[in-house]
Design a protein around this nucleic acid. Structure first.
Lengths: 337, 337
DNA sequence: TCCTGCCGGGCAAGCGGTTGCCGCTTGTTG
DNA sequence: CAACAAGCGGCAACCGCTTGCCCGGCAGGA
């Protein structure tokens, strides 16, 4: 069905330029790819003619091996999640420093779309950063065989990755709640396929063992504000004095949902988010949350991809760990007497 | 500098596959591109061998005209601006419906980066949606000559575009303020190169004429929360009872800035934003703002690009206009006694 | 039995650009 | 004045893949 484009201008080639300039095609080619090799004057003339003919190099036609495209793809699950701001910004700064252009692709939490995206992007970028990937380890390894890949917040044996210390961060947030006197903590879980969700739960469990706090798991909920609103409804059936949310969005949604139910935060229930996204301090009450070094995360990932593009071996399959930090704001308070 | 990749596996070609399968390269080619043309059995065998050899089609080597990539690029100025959520989501839904993959590129409000991005993306996508473009009309026309382009919220003669009725929306917001008794309105302006900024100001001026309100312009400020904070400082030197901001982000920043100066909203100053982005109802007080049909904007733009990719002539250079709607929330109030 | 037509596969040209090599034109030097 | 080198442009092969054309074989109809 790709009916031939009716208005397809045949596109001007070096041959056209060569004819117009009265030189050989090879000279035109050199005028562009090796300017020193041809007489400065001739080169200038050629480039002039090329320009006014509207000549556009078609680099992918370059004889041998695929050219560098100077583009790097960052694929993420959901743009509406402000977490990705900082992450993307980090990756962006690394790209900019390297003279690269960053392209973003959203997969909407769908494995099939992610596959299609990867398949397509693979051809035109030099490397990829995979965040919140929902496809299988082996599919990722497949991709990594073709182009440099770094996975974010997930470990795939054999593929370089950078992760944040989600477990310890979660542990810290529970510790904080314990210090405030809370004895039961409800976890509002996120997507089951998510690596981070597993780590969060691990942190909770460790806290349960070492700190003697009671933990409860609900969900899974969508990792969005709406998911959080729903979580509030579920929570209301088995209340607890403290809640740890999968991420900031869920936490914010939970607070809104609780508000509608007439439950005050932090008066009646303390809430801790995760990510310290930009929204965390814009909402009120301002959100207590675990700050993930999102910017560093994105930057590190992109830098590593770039290094691999530059020819570095994909070194240490050991995932790089980045530390977290608890940011106490207004949604946590001592347990009500 | 592009030192030859040391670990570059020569990459397997159809010739390798052909040799391994004991057939001619052309047969291998056909086995993939025209499966009906070759014996089903032979084809299957070839595909099998190809797979286990790790053969990957290199579509850009396809002899003639550049293949469809099934990707569409949306280039935008600043990802952190939640306006783009909806817009991108709209474009995304159109792409998905058409089986396309949407790639996003951020230009950070920089014309040179936008140029580089365009230059690179142009090669690998089938069409582009340009939002908040900061480059010249002629540069845009240049791009439009190569690939289908639709411009959002800006009109470029000769290039199809879809815009929202910014002028009328602005007029409406001033009208609302006038009805509340305000007599002077300060405009917190955005980037000068922005088409929307010009339209906003036009709406203000028309309101001044028709409604007899006094208007004042300050700025330009960066179209971000921080820009808004700065705007508050500037405004403080010539206070007015009402403020119209370039967009929601600036409005939110203004409110925070005002708060730090001890000025209450809407008690001492009414504020109207623009865009009705997701944040508008998450902040408190909730923001009065002009709702732009962001989703429709993105969808329409993408649909049109897609139609052009499909061979449709780039029709009516008449920009498509989409209407706005004023959403009154909590940041506007009758002028204080 | 011979002719016809179809099927499946190979040959080779060509897509647009790059590059090794060759040869012509200058200019320099002994 | 001859020998030589450097500079510069052209020729042609080649990159990996597609495709028009051709050819051999086999089956079915006359």
């Amino acid at each position: 069905m790709p009916e031939p484009d009716p208005d397809a201008t045949p596109a001007v080639t070096i041959y056209d330029v060569a004819r117009a300039a009265g030189v050989a095609p090879s000279t035109v080619s050199r005028a562009f790819s090796r300017p020193g090799r041809v007489n400065a004057e001739t080169g200038e003339r050629i480039r002039q003619i090329a320009a006014q003919l509207g000549y556009r190099a078609r680099p992918q036609a370059r004889a041998t091996s695929p050219t560098r495209s100077s583009m790097l793809a960052v694929v993420l699950a959901d743009l509406a999640n402000p977490v990705f701001y900082e992450l993307v910004r980090g990756a962006g700064s690394a790209c900019e420093a390297a003279g690269y252009t960053m392209m973003l692709a959203e997969t909407a939490e769908s494995a099939v779309r992610e596959r299609a995206t990867l398949e397509r992007a693979l051809e035109s970028v030099d490397g990829l950063v995979l965040t919140a990937s929902r496809i299988s380890d082996s599919a990722i390894r497949q991709v990594a065989k073709v182009k440099p890949v770094v996975v974010v917040n997930r470990v795939v044996p054999g593929v370089p990755s950078v992760v944040i210390d989600v477990e310890r961060g979660t542990f810290r947030s529970v510790q904080h709640l314990v210090e405030l006197g809370h004895e039961t903590v409800t976890y509002l879980s996120g997507p089951e396929a998510s690596w981070a969700d597993g780590m969060r739960w691990r942190g909770l469990r460790r806290a349960a063992e070492e700190l003697g706090v009671r933990i409860r798991r609900t969900g899974p909920f969508a990792p969005t504000v709406n998911g959080g609103v729903q979580a509030a409804a579920t929570w209301a059936q088995h209340r607890s004095s403290a809640v740890v949310a999968y991420n900031d969005l869920v936490a914010i949604g939970f607070i809104r949902g609780a508000g509608r139910l007439g439950v005050s935060v932090p008066g009646e229930v303390s809430v801790v988010g995760f990510d310290n996204s930009a929204m965390a301090e814009l909402v009120s009450p301002e959100l207590t949350t675990v700050a993930a070094p999102l910017h560093a995360l994105g930057r590190t990932a992109a830098q590593n991809v770039l290094a691999m593009v530059g020819g570095a071996r994909s070194q240490a399959p050991e995932p790089m760990q980045l530390p977290t930090r608890l940011v106490v704001r207004e949604t946590t308070a001592p347990v009500a007497g």
